[in-house]
Design a protein around this nucleic acid. Structure first.
Length: 529
DNA sequence: CTAGGGTTAG
């Protein structure tokens, strides 16, 4: 009855299987030695998990039948890819093999691969690929594999197994992957910060493209080096690109913009500007709005607002009209510098320049107002943007909520949290955490506990530190029952308290002579550790 | 979802 602490266990993805299908059919045509053999679902069964009582396959029960006996390959492929259940897609694939004279080709194989990948049945995909390698002489094409890699990537991140699949491509395609395929894969790894896997891929890529990679691949690598703080390596690669004879390895605008951005983030605007000039004078590359924006942002970060504004004039005189990004960057810069009036001016100038002010530019100004003690003005602006059809979203409201908290208007912030979801605004964990952190900072445990209940009801949990603070804070004011309620609510969502919070909690419970409760807690502690 | 920019939280 009482809640228990437990850890979530990652269950491995695997194809869930129906009881075994009838045993492989008698080879109807032994001469078709090169067709893919019947894929028994058993291939995917982990060794130790046979279903306890599989209905004995009656010899008369046929495998699932396709709608017609003589499906063409495109029809079959369409059926496989539109089948909602991956297991049924596999069954269908298998039963197709039984059609007299039918052998799978690249279309049906690709369809099944993609169908399995869509359900993240990565091990099934892997097994199928091994089978293809072993038995299937037909040639496969790259585009399905590209989709495959993207499908296996969950939320833009790629794990090692998917990379291995990618690396096995040359064997299946009988040629090296296209630069586009490499870029897709590399970028997924770089974006998700899988450093070791990036290295692994790069090693292979160097073997594939001995003569040099194209600019796109290099640019992704440069981005990677910049991200991990190895700017020197990024510049080494720039040098290599400059020296390469091939036209499509030459550094381009993206190469320079990436490097300039990295320099600016390190506070080296001056060097970024030198690089900018070098790009124009040496390589005759014409900057665009984005390149200018990187520079503008660089100056803003250094608080050099005069120079940031100057960039705007400079680009205009070079025939490059500023866009909403350029203005938003400046508004943001003024906001960070505490120059509210200048930010407002920029916002108006943007309008005069004939540019639509979108939700982001509004939000930037809202943030500027809220961070500089003008929450009420910020709230007015939110009303205005909503009226103009640029609906304020979580980001906007989080800024308002943050502003309210900073001014000690937590109650209003709480009201927004309570009300906004009903008005169609999808709040996120940050929305609640901003307020929770504020309440913990102010040691307002009563409201913090109330907020916790709201959060848990809506499926959010506070930041780790705040959770611990809340538990200890409740103990400190003698609300031991609430503390245990909070603890159980939090642990149910996977939270494991700091040992310090445990100590404090146990101490309080013991002091209140609730020995039974105390034992229960100790029991849970034992489960965790 | 082949490469570069502006808003929030931790």
């Amino acid at each position: 009855m009482r809640p228990r602490l437990h850890r979530t266990i990652e269950t491995p993805l695997r194809l869930r299987l129906r009881p075994p299908a009838p045993s492989p059919p008698e080879p109807h045509s032994p001469s078709h030695s090169c067709t893919l053999p019947w894929i028994s679902p058993l291939h995917y069964l982990p060794p130790s998990t046979p279903t306890s009582s599989p209905p004995p396959p009656s010899p008369t029960s046929p495998p699932p039948k396709p709608a017609t006996r003589h499906l063409t390959h495109p029809e079959a492929a369409r059926l496989i890819s539109t089948e909602p259940d991956p297991q049924r897609a596999l069954d269908l694939f298998n039963s197709l093999s039984l059609q007299p004279g039918f052998s799978h080709n690249h279309a049906t194989l690709s369809a099944l691969l993609l169908r399995l990948a869509k359900s993240r049945k990565i091990h099934a995909v892997d097994s199928l690929l091994s089978l293809i390698r072993l038995h299937h002489p037909c040639r496969l094409y790259e585009p399905p594999f590209l989709s495959l890699i993207s499908l296996l990537a969950s939320r833009f991140s790629l794990h090692e197994k998917s990379l291995d699949i990618f690396l096995s491509l040359p064997a299946l395609l009988r040629h090296k992957p296209s630069p586009k395929a490499v870029s897709t894969c590399l970028n997924l790894l770089v974006e998700s910060g899988k450093l070791d896997l990036v290295d692994k891929l790069v090693l292979h890529v160097k073997g594939w493209y001995v003569s040099g990679m194209n600019a796109c691949i290099c640019n992704i690598l440069i981005k990677h080096y910049c991200k991990v703080g190895a700017i020197e390596k990024a510049f080494e690669l720039l040098e290599e690109m400059k020296q390469s004879g091939s036209e499509d390895t030459k550094p381009n605008l993206i190469t320079y913009t990436t490097l300039m951005g990295a320099l600016c983030k390190e506070g080296k605007v001056k060097e970024a500007f030198q690089l900018f000039e070098e790009m124009i004078e040496r390589d005759r590359i014409v900057p665009d709005q984005l390149t200018y924006n990187v520079l503008t942002d660089g100056f803003c970060r250094q608080g050099q607002m005069d120079k940031a504004v100057a960039v705007l004039g400079f680009m205009r005189s070079n025939g490059c009209e500023p866009n909403k990004f350029n203005y938003s960057t400046l508004i943001n810069g003024f906001g960070k510098a505490g120059k509210v009036d200048e930010a407002k001016n920029m916002f108006d100038e943007m309008h005069r320049a004939g540019l639509q002010r979108d939700a982001v530019s509004y939000t930037t100004l809202v943030g500027c107002l809220c961070r500089n003690g003008k929450v009420d003005e910020g709230i007015e602006l939110v009303k205005e943007m909503n009226q103009r059809g640029c609906n304020a979203d979580v980001v906007t409201y989080n800024l308002v909520i943050e502003g309210l908290c900073k001014e000690g208007r937590v109650v209003e912030a709480l009201t927004l949290l309570e009300r906004l979801p009903d008005e169609g605004v999808k709040l996120n964990a940050a929305s609640y955490r901003i307020v929770m952190n504020c309440l913990c900072r102010e040691d307002d445990m009563d409201r913090a506990f109330g907020l916790l209940k709201l959060m848990l009801r809506r499926g959010f949990i506070p930041h780790f530190a705040a959770s611990n603070q809340l538990l200890v804070g409740l103990c400190n004011i003698g609300r031991v029952t609430d503390a245990t309620v909070a603890l159980y609510g939090l642990t149910e969502k996977g939270f494991v308290p700091e040992t310090g919070s445990w100590d404090r909690l146990l101490e309080s419970v013991c002091r209140e002579r609730k020995m039974q409760k105390c034992f229960e807690l100790l029991d849970d502690l034992a489960v965790v550790e």
